[in-house]
Amino acid sequence: MSNLVDVENLWVRFPTRTGLFDAVRGVSFSLGKERLGIVGESGSGKSMTGRALLRLIRKPGIVEADRMQILGHDVMSLPEKEMRKLRGRDISMVMQDPKYSLNPVMRVGEQIVETLSIHEKVDKKLARQKALEMLEAVVIRDPERVYDAYPHELSGGMGQRVMIAMMLIANPKILIADEPTSALDVSVQIQVLEIMDKLVRERGMGLIFISHDLRLVSNFCDRILIMYGGRIVEICESGKLDQATHPYTRGLLNSMPQLDHKNERLEVLNRDPAWRDQESVSGLL
C-alpha cells in the first residue's frame, strides 16, 4: 500500500432536532506523498473531513465510511488506545488558532516535549535539546527564551510556529493543517507557510492543507479538492486552477478582489441548488 491515507465514501452526521444533518456526504480521496489541499467555504465540511480522519468527531456525531485507512491502519475499527498512538506519531494536526489550541498554563517547551515523550522514551536533556532544535527549525530566533515562555507571552505568528514545531517533533508521516494561518497577518502568513512547506518537503511527509482560500492553497499544494455542501465538486491540479470548470470554483476565484487591477464590481456567487445534489467527485489515487 503506497498511499498514506485512503478514504472511501466518508459520511459525517449530526443528529439535530429536525433530524440527521449531513456535514460530509460520501467523500472519497487518498493522499500520496503529496500536498493535498481541501478548499471550501464555512460549512462545506472541509474541517469535519480532517477531524473525521483523526477520529476527533465526538458523540453524538456519527462517522461512517466504507474504508478509512491511515498507513494501512483501519481507522474505523482501531481501538482508542491504538488510535492515540497513531495520533502525533504518524499523523498530526495543526489547528487554526494558537490562542485556543495551546495549553495556557503550561510552558511552551514542556508542551513540545510532552508530544515527544508520549510516543518514545527519551532522556529529559535530550528531549529539551530536540525541542530547542525544532524551535530553531521553525525559525524562532531565541529558542531558549521561547522554550520557557507561556503561550500568552508569544505573538500569534510565534504561537503558530510553536504549534508546527510541536506537531513535527515526533516525525509524523502525515500532517493535517486546518486553516493554519487564518488568524495571522498577511506578511506573517507567508513566512509561516513557507516554513511549514519546507519542513514537510524535507521530511517527505504527506500534507493535507485545509483552507477557505483557494489562491493560497494553490500556492502550497499539488492537488486541490474543492468542497461544497459536504461533497467534492471538483479536483484541480494546482497549476491548472485557471482551467477549473465547475461554476462554484470559478465563482470562488472571481469573487476575490485583485490587487493588480480594478474590477468595478465583484462577481457574486449564485449558488445553484443542483450543486448540492451532484455526485461527489472521487479523489482516490
Binding site: E41, S42, H212, L214, G251, S255, P257, L266, V268, L269
Partner: peptide
C-alpha cells in the same frame, strides 16, 4: 466572512 460573501458586502458598500 467567506470570500463570496465578502464580494456581496463589498458590492453593497460600493
Amino acid at each position: 466572512l467567506d470570500v463570496s460573501v465578502q464580494a456581496e458586502i463589498l458590492n453593497l458598500l460600493c
